[in-house]
């Protein structure tokens, strides 16, 4: 991973929060950072190429577009198999995010997280069955957690 200089870091925070909706957004970002529009674009290209920025684009609100059932499916998968199976689950079209995280027994026995967005809970049920099939006998237990309310959602902040 290439190191980010202080201007890169500010640029990442600014672009993550949102491009200014003006005709020349990169020039506007450049004014805030004290660099030219060309320098902003060159840096963004480099940050995208290095993977620090995944993508730049419009970010729709799934919920407002009718994807009202947002579920976190969680699985207790054998540690020896989780990396290989995680890649398979992460490749499924219905899965938007897929992560390995630590278990915290006894409250939390799950180590594989697969997020799905669907129009309703029946559709989520179908996706959960499909993920379960991919995991086969390696998943000892699973659960599906629906989000019922967004209590706070803001862009990335870097508090000191």
């Amino acid at each position: 991973m290439s190191a980010l200089d202080p201007i890169d870091r500010r640029l990442v925070v600014e672009t993550q929060a949102g491009l200014p909706l003006v005709a020349e957004p990169y020039a506007e970002l450049g004014r805030r950072l004290g660099i030219s529009a060309d320098a902003v674009m060159t840096r963004l290209e480099r940050l995208a190429a290095s993977g620090a920025i995944r993508r730049i684009g419009v970010i729709p609100n799934h919920y407002a577009l009718g994807y009202r059932a947002n579920a976190m499916t969680v699985w207790d998968v054998d540690d020896r198999a989780v990396s290989e199976l995680g890649k398979l689950v992460g490749g499924m079209a219905c899965v938007t995010h897929c992560y390995r995280r630590p278990r915290r027994p006894p409250l939390w026995p799950y180590n594989l997280f697969a997020m799905v967005h669907a129009r309703d809970r029946a559709e989520v049920d179908g996706m959960t069955v499909a993920i379960g099939r991919v995991l086969g006998g390696h998943a000892r237990a699973h659960d599906v957690l629906y989000s019922t309310r967004i209590l706070k959602k803001t862009g990335l902040r870097l508090a000191a």
Partner: peptide, 9 residues
């Protein structure tokens, strides 16, 4: 309908 036009990091 749109959260923002911006980067995913």
């Amino acid at each position: 309908v749109l959260c923002r036009v911006g980067a995913v990091v």
